[in-house]
Design a binder for these strands. Structure first.
Length: 290
DNA sequence: CGCTGTGACCGGGCGC
DNA sequence: TGCGCCCGGTCACAG
């Protein structure tokens, strides 16, 4: 499941391969196209799939960048700028190939939902097994209100103070710390894996009420999150189930995880525990985390 | 108006 | 072998 480091990996791999190229044709899957008639919006949101295909046709890819867990692609057609939003959801993956049978894993090849033909003859392919991903064709981020609520990038200078300020709000201060650090309006890009790891590293129980953690400790926690996100970026992200980078390769960070998905605490060797916090499974060591 | 809780979206994988 | 259920990122919507 892609969190910030995995999305960053995709963007770094994707950008040099597609920037400057032109989308000559777009073809969405039957599942996506048929969903509209059924009153659903499978993957392509807020636009009729055929319109999405037509609109993207002829667009030049200017720049690919990441914000939180979103991939954004700056596009241009007839001197008019557009912004293509893509979120990988749980299982989204991009591939650049000459032919789609180069995608060797069945589960990715079987769930291709968007094919972008490039003017170079290459195929840019978006596959999404569980279809939790999404595309939105926008002019700017203002068009999609949730984007305006996002916390700053975690490596931005203002991110720490933003985090501390949000923690003081009534809606957050009585909530479990894990729920708060995973909230994109508090910290950008920190999902279950890295929240679990940072809390373990800090010895903080995931269910601790946010308002009951001293400021100094909150600062240390934030810095731990920054470090683990950076470490994971450097390692090529974590491949837990379906994450692949653009070359179909797994990341390396999963081998460095100490608590996420573990049965035994690597510090004290007691059995880990698991509880649901904010609707998500949270693993922790009952002895090391308080 | 703002906060809170719940449902919806999915198929791989696992437990029984 | 087969069936049913669990899981999760994000948002929409109800209360």
């Amino acid at each position: 499941m892609p969190e910030l480091p995995e999305v960053e990996g995709v963007v770094r791999a994707l950008s040099p391969k597609i920037e400057g190229k032109i989308i000559s044709k777009v073809s969405l899957s039957k599942t996506v196209i048929d969903s509209w008639a059924k009153g659903k919006q499978c993957i392509v949101k807020n636009m009729e799939p055929e319109e999405f295909e037509t609109n993207l046709c002829g667009m030049e890819i200017k720049q690919v960048f990441r914000r939180a867990k979103y991939i954004f692609i700056d596009l241009e057609k007839n001197h008019e700028p557009f912004l293509l939003l893509n979120h990988l959801g749980m299982t989204g993956a991009w591939f650049i190939v000459q032919h789609e049978d180069e995608i060797v894993e069945d589960k990715f090849r079987k769930h291709i939902h968007a094919r972008f033909s490039l003017n170079t003859g290459e195929l840019l392919i978006y596959s999404d097994i569980r279809r939790f991903g999404e595309f939105r064709l926008l002019h700017s981020m203002d068009e999609h209100p949730p984007l305006l609520q996002m916390a700053p990038e975690p490596f931005d200078d203002v991110a720490l103070n933003y985090f501390l300020k949000q923690c003081e709000l009534p809606k957050y201060k009585n909530k479990p710390i894990k729920e708060v650090i995973m909230d994109g309006q508090v910290i950008s890009g920190c999902g279950n894996i890295y929240a679990t790891e940072a809390l373990f590293k800090m010895g903080i129980h995931p269910n601790r009420q946010t308002g009951r953690i001293r400021k100094e400790r909150k600062i240390q926690l934030f810095e731990a999150i920054q470090r683990i996100l950076q470490e994971s970026i450097d390692m090529g992200g974590s491949t837990i189930s379906d994450y692949r980078n653009i070359n179909g390769e797994a990341g390396g960070m999963q081998h460095r995880l100490k608590m996420y998905g573990k049965k035994i605490c690597p510090n004290c060797e007691s059995n880990t525990k698991s509880m649901t916090i904010g609707g998500r499974t949270s693993v922790y060591c009952p002895k090391c985390q308080h």
